[in-house]
Design a protein around this nucleic acid. Structure first.
Lengths: 103, 103
DNA sequence: ACGGCATGCAACTCTGGGGTTGCAGGTTAG
DNA sequence: CTAACCTGCAACCCCAGAGTTGCATGCCGT
């Protein structure tokens, strides 16, 4: 369901991370509002939000003439699990190698 | 110490993730060996390894005429913590907003 | 000593994606 | 009704970075 590849690609961008922080800190906002706090155009923000939405990190909700974006924590948690799983696997592997080397 | 920005940027690349998987699965290997299992040149692999090393995800160890690369789990764990922290903060924020809306 | 293999360095190509501008389409407030 | 405001679409610029080729350097085994 959650595509870790897309989540990681989305998080690789500093501007996108700042947008997520802004949404997480000050609650749901529109692209225009977000753009006011960023050094880029509204259009650039819109594109970033599209990437974030594709990764499942934000959801868009229409309210009249404006579109509110809100964060969604699940993909972050999934990506974090993906990482800890790999880290654990590596640790196990390294331990095995060390053990073999000691014999 | 560990720069989450660089870790995320490093993990955003599919080839780099595959290289990490190869190293985590089959243990320390040289750039040449790794390149044999990838659809790209050895030079490309070398560049990727440089990025991974800068992020702290791998370490290089010289052994005679070859250079062995090995994974290092710590940066992954740090990045995972970074994510879960943010996810938790968002959850708290969302709960607060929901509570306010209900009153 | 030398042939073979692995690394190291440099210059070059080219595509993806971040950013911009300009304008058209809706919606709301007054 | 209309002016103001926000969103949506399209075309365009630009550069970082992924990838390549070619060659020089360095280490090993025999």
């Amino acid at each position: 369901m959650i595509d870790v590849d897309e989540v990681l690609a989305a998080l690789a961008e500093p501007t996108r991370r700042r947008l997520l922080d802004a949404l997480g800190l000050r609650g749901p906002q529109t692209a225009t509002t977000l753009a006011a706090g960023e050094p880029v155009t509204r259009q650039a923000v819109v594109k970033h939000l599209a990437v974030l939405e594709r990764a499942g990190l934000v959801t868009a909700r229409r309210a009249g003439r404006e579109v509110l974006f809100a964060v969604r924590p699940e993909p972050l948690e999934a990506a974090a699990r993906w990482m800890t799983d790999r880290a654990a696997a590596w640790d196990a592997r390294l331990a095995t190698i060390k053990k073999i080397a000691e014999e």
